[in-house]
Design a protein around this nucleic acid. Structure first.
Lengths: 223, 223
DNA sequence: ATTGAACGTGAGTGATAGCTCGTATTATAG
DNA sequence: CTATAATACGAGCTATCACTCACGTTCAAT
């Protein structure tokens, strides 16, 4: 796993940019179709309609291809979450959570096969800014959403609650997309249940709008 | 990915059994230490103190090694869940869920590195009976637990609820073990929060022990 | 003690795949 | 138009690795 020396050379002319795009598209096609093991640089170059040499002008090694694909994919989902958060700003907790879950799910359903390989088979490429850290902007925004609805939610450690929310949604969406469960369970059901799951967690120990109950102590003791 | 022709030959003598164990241990060490890419059959044999030939007498190919490791790992966790379920049989929902989460977490913490590679980097080996299906016994038992506590829980589609419970616990434990979150969040906190998450979901829409409220309709509509 | 099966060995083979480099082509600058 | 840089090419080098096989060793049974 060595993807330092990022882009070996930046494409300056438009045809070079097209070459890079073609390479990335080909890599994505092969990856989502036949998996990582079947993805050789020669094959990528061939499918892209360029030569291996061209490939290595823009990507220092094979792993850099995966990294680039990862970044592109991360950006897409990040943007969908961003849109969802912006669209529901000021709305109710339920509205915001619903939008988040749906955005996440739809983002992952854009290209489930590619997502599957990228996130399930090769999650360890380019550790620095991938996924968890990539959501930093989103993370902060979700935290402030929870802060705004503080009186309605049970967990008072907002960092923990934010982490749980993001992790749970991501994990459940991931699971639903990666290995769809047995027949009778639909994606729509899981989507709805995920929303209830998160809302159930956030609402735990909050009797509608009354006083805070002393059920709090059974929650995560601070270090 | 070809791991048909399961064990090429079964170890009949005790020294052969020891050889197989040594090979599996070596494979686990290399896998958890340096990852799949660094695991060559020659290196495994060397670390195990046997020759490559011996390795290929019991494992038809490299992938069979991974599969065997997967199965071993799956059995371990499965047994811990089994113990937890048996020990808390007849207890309250909270007790059972707590035991399940703890068992799952502790099972994954036995060898986080190995688990990381096995479940995060190579989850696609031996699809037939791994993980999801492997939990079938546990799945049924958890479903019956939910059935026994039916009056206390909100979700009435027990298949869905069981799926959500298992998936959520697994995913959150997984996340906590695989990429431990930022500094201020401890494993213990996540463990507790996971319990609350699941209980929050199960308890959603259930006002302690009174009549069923008509809040039900916002739940996942049946197909 | 003998024999045959189980077990173990490790140099070698074949194939694959990542990557280089000398060369050819195309674009931009002056 | 010329010069120089950018882009593109692709045969081939090199290294690695999964896997084989012909041969030696140890066990268990008769």
């Amino acid at each position: 796993m060595k993807q330092i020396e990022r882009p070996r050379k930046l494409p300056r002319q438009q045809r070079a940019q097209a070459t890079v795009e073609a390479i990335l598209d080909a890599a994505a096609r092969i990856l989502s179709g036949d998996g990582y093991a079947a993805m050789s640089t020669n094959r990528v170059a061939e499918l892209a309609g360029v030569s291996v040499g061209s490939l290595y002008q823009y990507f220092p090694n094979k792993d850099a291809l995966i990294t680039a694909l990862h970044e592109r994919h991360g950006r897409e989902i990040h943007e969908m979450l961003d849109v969802a958060l912006t669209a529901t700003a000021g709305g109710s907790l339920r509205e915001i959570i619903t939008a988040l879950v749906q955005a996440s799910l739809h983002g992952h359903l854009l290209d489930p096969q590619l997502h599957r390989v990228l996130e399930a088979e090769l999650p360890f490429f380019d550790p620095p800014k991938s996924e968890s850290d990539d959501h930093l902007g989103v993370h902060a925004r979700i935290r402030s959403v929870l802060e705004a609805h503080r009186e309605q939610i049970g967990p008072q450690d907002l960092d923990l609650a934010t982490y749980m929310l993001i992790t749970t949604v991501q994990a459940l969406v991931h699971a639903a997309v990666i290995d769809p469960p047995a027949a009778p369970l639909s994606t729509a059901q899981i989507e709805a249940a995920t929303i209830e799951m998160v809302l159930g967690y956030l609402g735990a120990g909050v009797p509608s709008t009354s006083v805070r109950t002393p059920t709090r102590d059974r929650h995560h003791a601070r270090l």
